[in-house]
Design a protein around this nucleic acid. Structure first.
Lengths: 131, 131
DNA sequence: GATAAGGTTTCCAGTGACTGGAAGGTCAAG
DNA sequence: CTTGACCTTCCAGTCACTGGAAACCTTATC
C-alpha cells in the first residue's frame, strides 16, 4: 500500500502520516523507487492513532498506548491509568470552558448590541476581575 | 513603570508583555537606558488583554476588541458579535469535549485495571469506530 | 516515444501564543 | 566595588501538524 491508500483507509492525511514516521510512530519500509510501503500492521497503527487522537490523547499518550497495545503482557491497569489521567484533564478543561461560557453568556446577554457605544462587555473586560 | 511592575500589576509575565509589544498590541516608549516605560494606558491595555485572554479570546479577537474599546464611537453590536461568535466556538468545544469524556468514561469503567492484559480500552482504540 | 496528470519524495517554513535560556547592559544597596 | 536584581536582545523550542516548492515516479493516452 502506498501512502495515499493508507491515508484514504485510515482517514489520516499523507502529510500527517509522514510526520508520524518522522517522530517514529510508524516505520514503513521503502520500495525500490523510494516510496513508503505500508503493511497491515502500519495501517492498524495509524487507525489506532486516528482514534486515540480523536479522543484527545496527546502524541506522547498515543506513543505509550501503542507500546502497551503491542505488549501482549501489559497490565490493563497501565492503560487505564493513562486513560484516567487524560479523563481528568478533559474534565478540568470542560470545567474551565463552562466557566468561560457562563461569563461570556452573561456579558453577551447584558449587551444591547445596537448602534450605541455603551457596551457592558468592554466595560467588564476593562475593569472587573473575572471569576 | 518598568516591565516588572506592570507584570506584577497586570498578572502578565514580562516575556508575554514583550511579545505583545512585538506583535503591536502595546507600544510603550523607551527610557534613555532603553528600558520600556509603561504608561497607565499601557497598563490598562495589558489588564484588558489578561481578562480577554482568560475568557479564551484569541489574540486577533483581542486586537479587535482593543480597537473597539479605544473607539468611542463604536457600536456595541460589533463587540457583541465578536463575543457571540467566540461563545459559539466555546460551546462547540465543550460539546466535543463532553463527547470525548463520555466515551473515555465508558472505556475506563469497562476496564478492570488489574494485572491482566485484557483491556477494553485498547480493544476499542484498535477496532471500533468512535462516536 | 512524447506528454500530461496525478502520486510520491524531500526539505523548509509557518501556525498560536507564548516560554526558556544565553549573553550582556543597568541600577540600587551595602 | 561588588553583589544581586532587574532590564535588554536574540535565538530556539513548544505541539501537532500543514502548506508549498522542486523534483522524481507511474500510469494512461496519443
Amino acid at each position: 500500500m502506498n501512502i495515499g491508500d493508507v491515508a484514504a483507509r485510515s482517514g489520516i492525511p499523507p502529510k500527517t502520516i509522514r510526520y508520524y514516521e518522522d517522530i517514529g510512530l510508524v516505520t514503513p519500509p521503502r520500495d525500490t523507487n523510494g516510496y513508503r510501503v505500508f503493511r497491515e500492521t502500519d495501517m492498524h497503527k495509524l487507525a489506532f492513532m486516528g482514534r486515540a487522537r480523536a479522543l484527545g490523547f496527546t502524541i506522547e499518550n498515543c506513543r505509550n498506548l501503542l507500546a502497551l497495545w503491542e505488549d501482549k503482557e501489559r497490565a490493563s491497569a497501565d492503560v487505564r491509568n493513562i486513560a484516567k489521567e487524560h479523563l481528568a484533564q478533559i474534565e478540568t478543561k470542560i470545567a474551565d470552558l463552562n466557566a468561560m461560557r457562563d461569563t461570556l453568556k452573561t456579558l453577551v446577554s447584558s449587551c444591547s448590541g445596537d448602534n450605541r457605544p455603551e457596551c457592558p462587555i468592554l466595560n467588564n473586560l476593562a475593569t472587573i476581575a473575572n471569576g
